[in-house]
C-alpha cells in the first residue's frame, strides 16, 4: 500500500525544550493511524508542522509525494483538519458556515451545493442546514466540523481529539460515520485521542513520549509486546489457584493471572487441566500498553 504521509528525522525545539526529536514514521493510504502521547509528548507540535502551522527545524515531511517545504499549498490541499475546538462561526447557519469555508478552497455555486448535499447525506445533517451553529449540540457540531474538513475532498483527515467531551453514544455515532467515510472515500485518518479504546481500532499506533517514538505497531503487536494476556479462573477456591504457583489477584468474582502471551497461557492450562475448568483468556488493553511504554496514564488530557 502507498505511503501517503512520510515523516523522516523531524526535529523541532522551542528554546531549550526539544519538542520533537528525530521523529520518523509513515502512514499508509486508507489506514486509520493513531498518534498517542500525554500532553507535552510532541503530538500537537507534529500535527502543527504537518498542517503547515509551524516551521520545523530539520527533517522532511512528504504528503502524498509533495514535499511540505517545496510545495506547501499542494500538500495542504490533501489535508482536512478537525481541530479540538470548533473554528466555525456561531452566528452563522450550518450552510453559511460551510459555504464561506468552501469558498476559501474555490468551491462555490453548483459545485458547493452538490458537495454540501453529499456531505449532509453522509454525515446525516440535512435537517440542520438552516440552523445556526450556536444552537447545535456538541455531537452535531462535531459532524459539521468534519463536513467542513471534507469539503475539498482531502485524501487525509486529521482528527485532533475529535471525541473529547462527547457522550459515549455520540462518540460511537461519530466513529460509525468516520468508518463509513473511510470505506466510501478511501480516506486516510490521522487521529490523536485520549481514549484508548479508539486507538485499539486503529491500523497503526504510534506512541510518543518526550518528543520521541517509544512504541509503534498494530494494536495487536503492541498488546503482545507490552501487555501480555490475562487468564481469569472462575468457580475455584483460592487454595486451588495457589497450586499454580503464579501470582494472582481476585477481581470480579474470579482469580486473574497475568501471563506473557497466549502461548504461555496455553502451556499453563495444559499443565493444570484440573484447575482450568471455567476460565477466559483476554488480551491486555491499550491502556496497559500505554502505561507499560510510558509509565504514565492517559486521563482525558492530563498526565497522572
Amino acid at each position: 500500500m502507498k505511503q501517503i504521509i512520510e515523516i523522516s528525522h523531524l526535529n523541532k525545539s522551542f528554546g531549550e525544550i526539544k519538542a520533537v526529536q528525530d521523529l520518523s514514521f509513515s502512514v499508509r493510504e486508507g489506514e486509520l493511524f493513531a498518534f498517542l502521547g500525554v500532553n507535552g509528548a510532541g503530538k500537537s507540535t507534529t500535527i502543527n508542522i504537518l498542517c503547515g502551522q509551524l516551521r520545523k527545524d530539520s527533517g522532511t515531511v512528504m504528503i502524498d509525494g509533495a514535499d511540505l517545504d517545496k510545495n506547501r499549498n499542494a500538500a495542504k490541499r490533501d489535508l482536512g483538519v478537525v481541530f479540538q475546538n470548533s473554528a466555525l462561526d456561531q452566528p452563522l447557519t450550518v450552510r453559511e458556515n460551510l459555504r464561506s469555508r468552501a469558498a476559501l478552497y474555490g468551491i462555490t455555486g453548483k459545485a458547493f451545493e452538490e458537495r454540501l448535499r453529499e456531505l449532509a447525506r453522509l454525515l446525516d445533517f440535512e435537517n440542520l442546514l438552516g440552523r445556526t451553529l450556536g444552537k447545535l449540540s456538541g455531537g452535531q457540531r462535531r459532524r459539521i466540523d468534519i463536513a467542513r474538513a471534507l469539503l475539498h475532498k482531502p485524501k487525509i483527515l486529521v482528527l485532533d481529539e475529535p471525541t473529547t467531551g462527547l457522550d459515549p453514544q455520540t462518540r460511537s455515532l461519530l466513529w460509525n460515520v468516520i468508518g463509513d467515510l473511510r470505506r466510501r472515500e478511501n480516506l486516510t485518518v490521522f487521529l490523536t485521542t485520549h481514549y484508548m479504546e479508539e486507538a485499539a481500532d486503529a491500523d497503526t499506533v504510534v506512541i510518543l513520549d518526550g518528543g520521541k517514538i517509544v512504541a509503534e505497531g498494530t494494536p495487536l503487536e503492541l498488546k503482545n509486546r507490552y501487555s501480555g494476556d490475562f487468564i481469569t479462573l472462575y468457580g475455584i477456591s483460592e487454595e486451588e489457584v495457589k497450586t499454580l504457583k503464579e501470582s494472582f489477584e481476585y477481581r470480579n468474582g474470579g482469580y486473574r493471572i497475568a501471563v506473557p502471551d497466549t502461548a504461555a497461557a496455553t502451556e499453563l492450562i495444559l499443565r493444570n487441566p484440573d484447575v482450568f475448568r471455567d476460565y477466559e483468556i483476554v488480551k491486555g488493553r491499550m491502556d496497559d500498553v500505554f502505561l507499560a511504554v510510558t509509565g504514565k496514564n492517559l486521563t482525558g488530557g492530563a498526565e497522572k
Binding site: 503547515g52 502551522q53 483538519v81 476559501l104
Partner: peptide, 13 residues
C-alpha cells in the same frame, strides 16, 4: 482569532 489554526492549515498563504 479562533480560526487562525484552521486558515493556516488551508492552502492559503
Amino acid at each position: 482569532a479562533k480560526d487562525n489554526d484552521l486558515l493556516l492549515s488551508m492552502p492559503i498563504p
